[in-house]
Design a binder for these strands. Sequence first.
RNA 1: CCCGGGAUAGCCAAGUGGUCUAAGGCAGCUGACUGUAAAUCAGCCAUUCGGUGGUUCGAAUCCUCCUCCCGGGACCA
Length: 382
Amino acid sequence: MSETTSLSVEESTALITRNLEEVIGAEEIPALLAQGLPLRHYIGLEISGKLHLGTGLMCMQKVRDLQRAGVHCIIFLADWHTWINDKLGGDRERIKRVAVGYFKEGLKASLAALGGKPEALEFVLGSELYHHNDAYWETLIEVSKNTTLNRIMRSISIMGRSEGESIDFAKLIYPPMQVADIFILRANIAQGGMDQRKAHVIARDVANMLTVAPLRDSTGKVIKPIALHHHLLLGLDKPPQWPVDAEKLRELRTAMKMSKSKPRSAIFIHDTPDEIRAKMRKAFCPPPSDGLDFNPVLDWAEHLIFRNGQTLFVARTPENGGNIEFESYEALTAAYSDGSLHPMDLKNAMSEALIALLEPVRKHFGDHAEIKAMWAELEAML
RNA sequence: CCCGGGAUAGCCAAGUGGUCUAAGGCAGCUGACUGUAAAUCAGCCAUUCGGUGGUUCGAAUCCUCCUCCCGGGACCA
């Protein structure tokens, strides 16, 4: 508790904004910190299948940073959004059980593994937030009245659906609901992957038009939520288009990301060491001659190891060059580029690094029968 | 409720009475080749065609009933 208050505005700002793909409203942060406004963060998660590293590690790394910066962090368990988006069979009771069971435990364990404070997390369940909450529904209407149908239709990519896809009407309610969530949770910081920016941009655009639940700073002035967008980890499988056409990168990003619906592309937070080794061994890992940009193994090394303040130890036989430890991503890519680090050695090193990083999570799921049962229940409904 | 169109492997999809123990593609799996993966090559991958009853020597293919999906329309005192 004392560590959070001892940070300067600059230090806090740096923690809040580091290691992100994009920050919208970065210039507003120092002022909010300086005036001592309590910062409330939010990240909304659909209760879809198993938790993979994108959620467990990428999302939670930022949550850890925010906690260290003194921000109150809220994990919004979006059971209604899950229902709307046809995940988990659309069974609301099961979704709710998985949310407050498996999901909560998985996220807490992941955050703990990254050095965060799971006990300080606030979990909010969508269905509970909405129940008997006039302000929520009023805000939903206000958000809707201040945006357009076209805008909403263009934003359905936030739910992993492509524009032009045939959808039922409920899916159009999803984006404005997500925006309303932010305001009703009084979150002045909204976090999500790059795929969530459309919802966050709408939130900022309508922020000044809301009358029921506007966000305010300490002086009472209406403010917009700061939007933090973290990197989307590449899937371990070959991108749908290879080589990647830089022109089409925008659309391809989503197709290239790790996805639980493509098991080969993802590692889950409680995968066993052997599963991790097997998936990593099969991972797409193009040679340096193909460039470094869309290599998922390097991508993971950068975002999960180095940006997490760790080093990468590569155990090699003497004939393959002997052991070596990389202190930075730059050093790693330099070695990979000049051919002195073989892809297989890189993969082996990443496997062991991830196994070690996820060890506490596996332990959490393995040691407690009750938590293991939650996981089993989820597996059974996939 | 009415009209029309559908329902074939994880997905897309051919096939409209026998040669269908169901083409092809994607995905997936295995092996070969690479000190990784990818690419390439070889192999595997529906005894079964939404369910039911029937016609027939013989049905995924024709008929009955049922279930579900899609499009349109009707109803809306």
